[in-house]
Simulated scan of single mutants.
Amino acid sequence: MAGCRTNAKGNAMPISIRIGNQDLTVDVSSLGAEMQALTSGDGRSWLWTGDAAFWTGRSPILFPIVGKAPDDKIAIDGTVYPMAQHGFARRSEFALAASTETMCRFELAASEATRAVYPFDFQLAVVHAVEGRALTVTAEVTNRDPKPMPFGLGFHSAFAWPLPGASGRDHIVTLDNKGEPALVRLEGGLINPAPLPSPFNAGRLVLDHSMFEQDAMIFPDGAGEGLAYGSEGGPAMRFHFKNLPNLALWTKPGAPFLCIEPWHGTAAEAGASSELSKRPSTTILAPGAVASFAFTVEIPQ
């Protein structure tokens, strides 16, 4: 199936696919295989709208790095390549490989353009699938190269803050494991690895925009495989993560969204090597191997 249309100059034009059922509708763009809308059957919208006044992203896929690299450059076996923050997948046109009423699969394969900055033969497939009131987003990375392939993979979905029907209420993130994971912060976009006290208390974090004046809150370890994001006495979204050991929470102070970001890989550490394989939580995928990462979000009644 064709993944995109072309304009009069032959340039790719993104397409949009809508999947869903009576409970949940999801719109996905071929540009970045990025979710554009998440709407319950009663018309409530749970995903950020991408208002350019704050941030145009909605739910980008981060690959082959998460976060920044020193001077926007990575090294692979000593050779230096340019690499923008969060990698190139989010600005790449994916091909539509399959779709049904409740599922769509977009694929990005290595090209001359990607090899210029990331010298590997890979395939990145992103699947959105709806079942009942739940959406599962899966990223599947295949190493088609004869050598081991290092990469980071992350999700960067932004959800409404306040949630529908919850204006004026406190909003809370609650970890399923009731943990109090250590916090790290960014300095110039790079990780300062010195751990800070956890803002969680027995797994509970009452959100405040002032928490994001120093950029994202990043939890490299211990946030667990699931959480709830909801309002005090109001609706809550429930999340489950697969093969995503790192967690970040982010917004721009005053912006009406909260990014819930499960990752496998983080920004480079300040002062550390620019080698991609040395970044925290990097996956090194054997030739011919496939790695899968996923999150599921359930929308409240």
Rank of each mutant, 00 (worst) to 15 (best):
S40H: 04
G50L: 05
S30P: 03
A37W: 08
L47D: 14
L47M: 15
E34S: 01
K73L: 11
T79S: 13
S40A: 11
M35K: 05
V66E: 12
D27I: 11
P64Q: 08
T79A: 10
S29L: 08
G57D: 12
A75C: 08
T79Q: 12
I74M: 10
W55P: 03
L38S: 01
G50W: 06
T56E: 13
G67L: 13
G57L: 03
G78Y: 04
G57P: 00
P70I: 07
Q36L: 12
L62Q: 10
V28A: 00
G57Y: 10
A75K: 12
S30Y: 08
S40L: 02
A37Q: 05
W55N: 09
P64K: 10
S30I: 12
S30T: 15
G67M: 08
Q36R: 11
K73E: 14
G67I: 09
I65S: 02
W55V: 09
L47S: 11
V66W: 03
A69N: 12
D77E: 14
S40I: 00
G50T: 11
G57Q: 06
T79G: 00
K73C: 14
Q36V: 09
L38E: 00
A75T: 11
G41K: 07
S45F: 07
S45Y: 12
S45N: 05
F63V: 11
D71Y: 03
R44T: 13
R58T: 09
D51F: 04
S30G: 14
G57I: 03
